[in-house]
Write a protein that binds this DNA or RNA. Structure first.
Length: 958
RNA sequence: GCGGGCGUGGUGGAAUUGGCAUACACGUCAGCCUUAGAAGCUGAUUCCCGCAAGGGAUUGGAGGUUCAAAUCCUCCCGCCCGCACCA
């Protein structure tokens, strides 16, 4: 084999880098800084996955290039070392989480070093080390003192298998993110961080970030801001006599508040529904309904989130036998409980408007609750200065087969429609509809079964070139017999249309007109009208648009002290308590006399004891360790008890990027000067799976610390990139169960680290998902082998001593391209450009040590080991990192000749070479003289020609 | 349902502003080298017709804008990711 020995070379340079501490970074305010950060890994027992080196190589390339450009670069690595997997493994195997984690970390560090990443290992952080979690606890206390950490009893997500509470963000499809066990609701006293206080700031701050659209959209979705109205429905509790005293209990009034984004539909409320957990349920339920209602509440509690809220789930509910008063009409509104009302969103109560909400509609249908239309639909696009008309749409259904009468007008006249037409003066809708059906289809024996509200339809009549606003009415007929009269349609419609009977499916697919489709949905599909429209049946608000009515009804409610505007968020406060062992203890002490007492800062860290029975029982393992939880109250000295829960690991990772700036600091979580110099992070690279967890929490921490003056910036990560997922060779996600997992160690052993790094960068666009293909790796290895060979031949004077001007131009073109591509994270095309350069260099005979030197530097961020070796071969004593990044000479890129594409009628017919800057006439003269173009133009007239200097001439003929 | 994205040769993928579609790599085929194999080197390789010169078609599908569309617009089909009874 002519290639190089990667084992020998890579080991040699890794040792050199370690010994010379070349990746070590010091704070240097005189130099411009660049903070390039990878999301730190959870050190799992499986070791590094091929997905890890993808992001790590990208940041390494950028960090190396930046160093060569003279920046002071912070490029650290550490371990997100607390967490459930280590504890679960311990329960299974008996190996202590600390022992397994420390061992895994050693393995990860070895693997990362074997790939030649330029991390400053002197700054390594480990969230499970007391020197780190001491400051996690300090930050907890900081939040506590600022009123941002609080303990509350709340319905929480509970995983029975992991025996712990989960954050909302850790519940996926109603199941535990980790073990996929269904999550149930439990009432527990838990610690929370007040993230919701920062909802608007988190929303606004996201706008300006240089982050993927998708991540920003996901955060926006997750925060879920919606503006609406809170409305009070007042009620009176049923007076119940106390059984013991037989005395009547006093009558109490109550407010039942609902949240809605559609106050314009308020007059359509026909019931109100509470979540089963709503505190009013027990107080207002009628005595004769009590047993049934409480049984329903109990049944709901036992269900998992998925069973309750799964989309396919049929809505269920029971009436409470209580009623409330409509705030504007004074009508009596029945109150129900139903599991489709969520206790955790809004007020936990919803007003039921079946005519204008799909869920309410389904519920009302099932329990035969009244459906009152208060919004008249608006279809089509509003027109300027429209003609006003009145019309009907008649839907005739054949009850024997369910088919619907339609007319095919042909594609030029609007395609398939139902029967429709304009109303004459003084003609009522039904008379008009019967007339139109008779005239257009001949059917006369019809029974009217339904009439719609007025539909405000707007459209533009292309044939007559006017906008129209039509008040239409939909009528639903049933065909009683197929008795027909002669079709007597108007003369100008004659012969253009075909009468057809369509099945509902066909009709749904074929009838596209907005008005006709609406009538079809209303009568045949029976769905609610959920869009905005014009108010009807709403007393003084009739005729208003939804938009105006929302405002005016909210004002009217406020005037009556029965409601007002309110902003609601999907985001909840962050539940950080975990009833598990392997995490940072929450630094709080409970004293019978003093209550909740924060651990004094001087007593930090609250050490996690090593010798603990960590089997899960639903109670924190630390609660079973008397040495841990039995303490003296820091206030009064009385016997007290430590909080035995630990913190969610996302607390650990919410501030680690700050710790890297001063990892050894024993006075503070981070040194202000160091943080001010290095932060915010300039480039952050990591998986999109952290879009709403880690990334949102880290932003929250940053905003808190900024607000209280600890840091000068309010966003932690200026720019973010997500590496695309590397799929298995079968195109499926890599997983042990599929058996398609690739181990990076194997690839390094066979092909070398440089090859793995470059292969992962070459596979495709950095941010796209792409499948692994072991066969393709050799292409990269061949490239590196050829680089090795040609450089050796050049050094050993087996090649020419100079390269041609063309090669010089190619080199500079490549420098420009590779530099730009690295900045844009387009590593695949950067590598392709270097492959082309190497192909050209080899083909042109190689040679020229200066050319070789520049090429080696250009390649060095991608394949650092090989390039250090070649750099040494070229006679250099210092690392490539001590050299400057190559710059291109723009003047060398100027070409003397340009190739012009000659098109005839847009088709490429010829290419000609002309001097750069040649005029249109010169190009034409030369082009028309070519045999091919001359032949094509023979006897034709040139209509026009388009000329793009130095690029293209397009001649349009005939 | 809502949000984000994607669809290009046998395969992974390229194509800056609308201006040569298929760069680069894998694979395949042929040749060189070799006792032979491996490796390496050289060349060919979108598809169809054609001995060839050459011609035609082509970026999921159908329309549209334009001198010119993978790229912009409309509709449709398919795939991936995230959220989802959020009132």
């Amino acid at each position: 084999m002519r290639g190089y020995d990667h084992n020998e070379i890579e080991k040699k340079w890794q040792d050199f880098w370690a010994k010379s501490e070349i990746f070590r970074t010091d704070d240097d305010p005189t130099k411009k800084k660049c903070y390039v950060l990878d999301m730190f890994p959870y050190p799992s027992g499986n070791g590094l996955h091929v997905g890890h080196p993808e992001g790590y190589t990208a940041t390494d390339i950028i960090a190396r290039k930046r160093r060569m450009e003279g920046w002071n670069v912070l490029h650290p690595m550490g371990w997100d070392a607390f967490g459930l997997p280590a504890e679960n493994f311990a329960i299974k195997s008996g190996v202590h989480p600390k022992d397994s984690t420390w061992k895994n970390i050693d393995n990860f560090r070895r693997q990362l070093q074997s790939l030649g990443f330029s991390y400053d290992w002197s700054r390594e952080v480990n969230t499970a080390d007391p020197s780190y979690y001491r400051w996690t606890q300090w930050l907890f206390l900081f939040l506590y003192k600022k009123g941002l950490a609080y303990k509350a009893k709340a319905p929480v997500n509970w995983c029975d298998s992991c025996q712990t509470v989960l954050a909302n963000e850790q519940v996926v499809d109603g199941a535990c993110e980790r073990c996929k066990h269904p999550v149930i609701q439990k009432e527990l006293s838990q610690w929370f961080f007040r993230v919701t206080d920062y909802a608007d700031r988190l929303l606004e701050g996201a706008e300006k970030l240089d982050w993927p659209h998708k991540i920003k959209a996901m955060q926006k979705n997750w925060i879920g801001r919606s503006e609406g109205t809170e409305i009070s429905f007042r009620g009176v509790m049923t007076p119940v006599s106390d059984v013991a005293t037989e005395r009547s209990v006093s009558i109490k009034e109550y407010d039942l508040a609902v949240f809605t984004t559609r106050p314009d539909t308020l007059f359509g409320v026909t019931y109100v529904v509470l979540a089963p957990e709503h505190p009013l349920v027990e107080q207002i339920v009628a005595s004769d309904r009590r047993d049934e209602v409480l049984a329903y509440v109990r049944a709901t509690r036992g269900k998992s989130e998925l069973q309750r809220t799964g989309l396919e789930q049929e809505k269920t509910g029971v009436p409470l036998g209580a009623s409330v008063v409509h705030p504007l009409t004074g009508a009596s509104i029945p109150v129900w409980i139903a599991d489709y009302a969520l206790a955790t969103y809004g007020t936990g109560a919803v007003m039921g408007v079946p005519a204008h909400d799909d869920r309410d509609f389904a519920f009302a249908k099932k329990y035969a609750l009244p459906i009152t239309t208060v919004i008249e639909p608006v279809t089509g696009e509003p027109q300027k200065d429209p003609e006003h008309r009145r019309s009907i749409v008649a839907l005739v259904e054949d009850p024997t087969n369910g088919k619907i009468l339609s007319i095919d007008w042909g594609s030029a006249m609007g395609g398939h429609l139902f029967v429709g037409g304009g109303r004459e003066e003084n003609e009522d809708a039904e008379t008009c509809a019967r007339r139109e059906v008779r005239e257009e289809t001949g059917y006369v024996d019809l029974e009217l079964v339904g009439t719609s509200e007025t539909i405000h339809h707007h459209y533009f009549a292309h044939s007559k070139n006017v906008g129209r606003a039509i008040d239409a009415v939909g009528l639903h007929f049933r065909l009683k017999s197929d008795r027909r009269e002669a079709v007597a349609h108007e003369a100008d419609e004659q012969g253009k249309f075909t009468v057809e009977w369509l099945t509902p499916n066909e009709a749904g697919a074929k009838v596209g007109d907005a008005l006709h489709a609406y009538v079809f949905r209303k009568f045949i599909l029976g769905t609610a009208y959920t869009d905005d429209g014009i108010l009807t049946g709403s007393s003084e608000f009739n005729g208003l648009t939804s938009e105006d009515a929302k405002r005016k009804i909210t004002d009217a409610l406020a005037a009556k002290n029965a409601g007002g505007s309110r902003v609601q968020y999907h985001l909840r406060d962050w539940l950080i308590s975990r009833q598990r062992y392997w995490g940072a203890p929450i630094p709080i002490i409970y004293c019978d006399a003093c209550g909740e007492v924060p651990v004094p800062e001087t007593d930090l860290p609250v050490l996690l004891p090593y010798d603990v029975d960590f089997r899960p029982t639903g109670e924190s393992p630390l609660a079973r360790s008397p040495e841990f939880h039995e303490v003296k109250c820091p206030h009064c000295g009385a016997a007290a008890r430590r909080e035995s829960d630990t913190m969610d690991t996302f607390v650990d990772s919410s501030w680690y990027f700050l710790r890297y700036t001063s990892p050894g600091n024993e006075e503070r979580p981070f040194d202000s000067h160091a943080v001010n110099y290095w932060c915010p992070v300039d480039l952050y690279v990591g998986g999109a799976e952290h879009a709403v967890l880690h990334l949102l929490y880290a932003r929250f921490f940053t905003k808190v610390l900024h607000e209280h003056g600890l840091i000068p910036f309010d966003e932690p990560f200026t720019s973010l990139k997500n590496p695309g997922l590397i799929m298995g060779e079968d195109g499926q996600k890599m997983s042990k169960s599929r058996g398609n997992v690739i181990n990076p160690d194997d690839v390094v052993a066979e092909y070398g680290a440089d090859t793995l790094r470059m292969y992962e960068m070459f596979m495709g666009d950095f941010e796209d998902a792409k499948p692994w293909d072991t066969k393709s790796i050799v292409g990269i290895r061949r490239f590196l082998d050829r680089m090795w060979t040609v450089t050796h031949d050049t050094v050993h004077a087996r090649r020419a001593s100079t390269t041609s001007p063309d090669m010089q131009r190619a080199l500079h073109r490549t420098i420009k391209k590779v530099s730009a591509d690295i900045e844009a994270c387009k590593f695949n095309t950067a590598i392709s450009a270097m492959m082309i350069l190497l192909n050209d260099w080899t083909a042109s005979g190689g040679g020229d040590t200066q050319f070789a030197e520049t090429f080696v530097l250009l390649l060095s961020p991608f394949a650092p080991h090989l390039c250090e070796e070649l750099w040494e071969l070229l006679g250099h004593k210092k690392s490539t990192l001590a050299s400057s990044w190559p710059t291109h000479d723009e003047s060398l890129l100027k070409e003397e000749n340009a190739q012009i594409i000659i098109q005839v009628n847009g088709k490429v017919r010829e290419r000609i070479d002309v001097p750069v800057g040649a005029s249109e006439d010169e190009v034409k003269a030369k082009a028309f003289a070519t045999e091919k173009i001359a032949a094509l133009l023979e006897g034709k007239t040139i209509v026009k020609s388009i000329f793009v200097p130095d690029k293209l001439l397009n001649v349009v003929i005939e």
